[in-house]
Design a protein around this nucleic acid. Structure first.
Length: 222
DNA sequence: AACCAGGAGAGAG
DNA sequence: CTCTCTCATGGT
């Protein structure tokens, strides 16, 4: 049986038609993107927004202010986002590292991608997905962010369950021609679709994409 | 009332 | 290397 893998460009075309430009990452500054990327780990964005408001109320949304902040104060302000002790400690240490080593995120914009990966990837609290989000949304490097929603959705419409993340991500770069704008909104749309339609249960066939893209799949045996 | 949320790290085998 | 446990609050 010959199964034609669906192009990321085709999937994105369908998603773009459905959601349009979602304008991700939703934040006012680069510092706020970084903070949000830590707070949203295994947590609903709704609660992250509340936590960020609490930080703003205490003038603690800049990395400089977070680096100088009291960790217990940070913890209480972000409490609603869950895992608050871990996240407070990590936000604090990450902010200190950035401010002390480079001054600010804006002063890091000309650094090579490989060097950024070595710097951020080595920090506690920054795993694969968070690192990729930082590279794409803060430093505008061509990267496909893989999260659980993307993995779930793509395995249903195109890629098999066992396909490795790295291979799928590389294919996306090729299919979307390393367009940072497309990659930003591609991830945004996958998350939006996942939140609204695609549940964890395997029997869930609500994914609209599966219907939209079915015409492109060649399931006929030769 | 179990299950999920825009994960990551540490430890075991 | 893969599996499992922990971190924790809030919504459905």
């Amino acid at each position: 049986m010959l199964v034609a893998l669906i192009d990321h460009a085709l999937i994105y075309e369908s998603l773009l038609g459905r959601f349009g430009d979602l304008h991700w990452w939703p934040a006012e500054t680069s510092d706020e993107i970084l903070v949000g990327s830590i707070l949203t780990q295994n947590t609903s964005w709704k609660n992250v927004e509340k936590a960020i408001e609490q930080l703003k109320d205490g003038n603690l949304i800049s990395l400089e202010s977070i680096a100088d902040a009291n960790e217990e104060d940070l913890a209480q302000r972000i409490r609603i986002s869950g895992f608050y002790r871990q996240k407070a400690a990590r936000l604090h240490s990450i902010s200190m590292e950035i401010v002390h080593r480079h001054g600010s995120l804006d002063r890091m914009r000309s650094i090579d991608t490989e060097e950024l990966i070595a710097f951020f990837g080595g920090m506690k609290g920054i795993g694969k997905e968070t690192l990729d989000s930082i590279l794409l949304y803060i430093f505008e490097r061509p990267v496909m962010v893989m999260d659980s929603y993307s993995r779930r959705i793509l395995s249903r419409v195109s890629y098999p369950e066992y396909a490795e993340d790295h291979a799928i991500q590389q294919a996306a770069l090729s299919d979307l021609q390393c367009s940072v704008d497309a990659l930003k909104n591609y991830h945004a749309c996958l998350v939006e679709l996942g939140k609204n339609y695609c549940r964890k249960t395997p029997e869930c066939a609500e994914c609209p994409l599966k219907h939209d893209c079915n015409y492109a799949m060649d399931l006929s045996s030769p």
